[in-house]
């Protein structure tokens, strides 16, 4: 394909110009108390397994289920976008390969114009509205809370399980606490972040969750796998 032939056209919003609010359909995707929500690994009944699971084991797996997930897209060179997001979140958007944690909210860099915001489910719609109220011009927010889930892996042998699963270098010299990368995971993909010396979070897509659950059980077997409900 091609070169960018007319780069000058892609100038960001000019200062002083009144940027318009994008016209989008915003929807609260959280039902009330009645309907039952099932996480992507609901069928695996991790809670039941956790009760029988051996307390020992070099790897501990927990699904952080039914959280709120928002994809935020925008141009980090657009001052108004950056300022607006900073105002709402209370911190600046993390730079490449960094995660910011503010209380219950974590913000992961995904791409030069993409961040993943994870928070308790009930906060997602509120946060989307606050961001939309503040932001103007070109950006996008997509609620993907139903489309993915977080698998938290902890324990002294997690790094070995990761070595079996991703070609990315997870050694602490290359992957310190607070870093996040999107990479190949087994034959799927994951957003991999390190939240502690022995604590890692994988954000995986719903439809691949069962495959990755099988994969992680297999890869952890030699170290002992403990399940946390």
């Amino acid at each position: 394909m091609s070169d960018v032939t007319n780069v000058e056209a892609s100038s960001p919003v000019q200062a002083g110009e009144q940027a318009a609010k994008p016209q989008v359909a915003v929807m609260n995707l959280l039902a009330g108390e009645g309907p039952r929500a099932d996480s992507p690994l609901a069928h695996a009944e991790l809670g039941a397994i956790a009760k029988q699971s051996d307390a020992k084991g070099g790897v501990c797996l927990q699904e952080l289920k039914l959280l709120g997930h928002l994809v935020l897209r925008g141009d980090p060179n657009n001052q108004s976008f950056v300022a607006g997001v900073t105002k709402v979140l209370g911190v600046a958007l993390p730079a490449a390969l960094k995660t910011e944690v503010i209380g219950e909210l974590s913000v992961h860099w995904v791409s030069p114009d993409e961040w993943l915001l994870i928070m308790p489910a009930k906060q997602a719609f509120q946060l989307e509205r606050e961001l939309r109220a503040e932001l103007t011009g070109h950006y996008a927010i997509v609620n993907v809370s139903g489309g993915q889930t977080v698998l938290r892996l902890t324990g002294p042998d997690v790094d070995k399980v990761l070595c079996k699963s991703t070609p990315y270098d997870v050694h602490e010299r290359n992957f310190p606490v607070g870093k996040v990368v999107t990479s190949v995971f087994a034959k799927s993909q994951a957003v991999i972040s390190r939240s502690g010396e022995e604590a890692w979070d994988l954000v995986v897509r719903r439809s691949f969750a069962d495959y990755l659950w099988l994969w992680l059980q297999d890869a952890s077997a030699e170290y002992g796998l403990q399940i946390k409900g």
């Binding site: 091609s2 070169d3 032939t5 990315y168």
Partner: peptide, 17 residues
Amino acid sequence: HREEEEFHAAGQAHIAR
């Protein structure tokens, strides 16, 4: 740097439509 597995080749560059 990342492993090749993360990438797809997308053909010859600089072909303007």
